[in-house]
Design a protein around this nucleic acid. Structure first.
Length: 337
DNA sequence: GGGCCCGCAGGG
DNA sequence: CCCTGCGGGCCC
């Protein structure tokens, strides 16, 4: 096997850390956030973990630390409150058929979950002559736009008020972000479907230099990001207000939850945590990062292919081996497109 | 595939 | 008006 490029090596490292963080937030169990609240509460908490070291890097957000301290008081066998459920441990009582759950994702009005194009759902009905009929500057779902709705371009997402900007990844207001787009702009973000990490904006030279002026929409990272940036602040705010955030996934995202073409509305998520870390760039410029978690009681997200779906179910069954879970999750993000 | 340039929506 | 930004189309 050829040696990894420095970029790929750094990428694997960042992905590993991001998954570690998701795990510390209890977001490492497939579909855990999609269970009914009662089911989730019944799940017993396993392995109270003490991960603190890597969180030293995460400033801003005492609330998360307080919650963590609380849930650590729980002993094995005790139920955690719904808010504090941290792992989708093996279900002790009721048997959950993950395979069926995942398969049911394919009954969505999805477009490209497996590379098959359907054209009947290029945006919902009721859009009049290409004009927007709903306000994108509000929180939560948009009337008439089902989870799984698909568009060929970002323009469609904008017209149907799911995600207003044609280019920008973040849209929001004073109480947090309205919507975000996952489109592979940052290669070290982790996507588990029901949870993902997301990188903020800023720190790019869109105008180039004096000698080499440009007029770009995206560019390589060339300085630190910060929460002073409006968009980054919006998402930080979301982590406090817990307002629901609409999420679209685009074809450029390196994830098996990405559509093979176009853009798909995947429903509502909440921002669980915000922090800063070194981004995937040679100089190690800091970026703002966020952990998202899908809100319960929504249609499942399409995945690419039954085989991978079944692997995900098996992974959950084998979760008591941490190394296995690491391995499985790695392949989940790193390959298979 | 990569480089370049452009429109556009939104926020200040 | 100014600025930004996980697009898109065109060219090669």
């Amino acid at each position: 096997m050829a040696p990894l490029s420095e970029y790929e090596r750094q990428r694997e490292e960042n992905i590993r850390k991001n998954k570690e963080l998701l795990r510390s937030l209890g977001l490492d169990g497939p579909l855990s956030s999609m269970l009914e609240p009662k089911e989730a509460a019944r799940k017993k908490e396993s392995k109270s973990r003490k991960r603190k070291a890597e969180q030293a890097e995460a400033p801003e957000e005492p609330p998360a630390k307080a919650r963590r301290a609380d849930s650590e008081k729980l002993k094995d066998g005790e139920s955690a409150p719904v808010e504090g459920v941290r792992r989708s441990s093996r279900n002790t009582g009721k048997v959950v058929d993950y395979k069926n759950e995942i398969k049911s994702a394919h009954s969505l009005p999805y477009a490209y979950s497996s590379g098959v194009k359907t054209t009947e759902n290029e945006g919902p009905l009721g859009r009049e002559g290409g004009k927007r009929v709903h306000d994108p500057k509000k929180y939560g779902s948009i009337p008439g736009v089902d989870v799984g709705t698909w568009w060929e371009t970002r323009e469609g997402c904008s017209t149907d008020a799911i995600h207003a900007p044609w280019v920008g990844g973040i849209s929001g207001g004073k109480d947090g972000a309205y919507s975000v787009a996952l489109s592979g702009g940052y290669d070290d973000d982790v996507d588990l479907g029901y949870a993902f990490t997301y990188t903020g904006s800023g720190g790019r030279d869109l105008k180039g230099t004096k000698n080499n002026p440009k007029n770009l929409r995206t560019a390589p990272q060339s300085s630190d990001q910060s929460f002073d940036n409006n968009f980054n602040r919006m998402l930080l705010r979301s982590s406090q207000t817990k307002k629901p955030v609409r999420v679209i996934r685009g074809y450029k995202l390196r994830s098996r939850y990405a559509p093979s073409e176009g853009y798909r509305y995947d429903g509502l998520y909440a921002v669980e945590r915000a922090w800063m870390e070194k981004g995937l760039n040679d100089k190690g410029y800091l970026v703002c990062k966020y952990a998202f978690k899908r809100l319960p009681n929504q249609p499942l997200i399409p995945v690419r292919g039954e085989v991978e779906a079944n692997e995900a179910a098996d992974e959950d069954a084998n979760e008591n081996e941490e190394s296995q879970s690491d391995e499985a999750s790695n392949s989940l993000v790193a390959e298979s497109l």
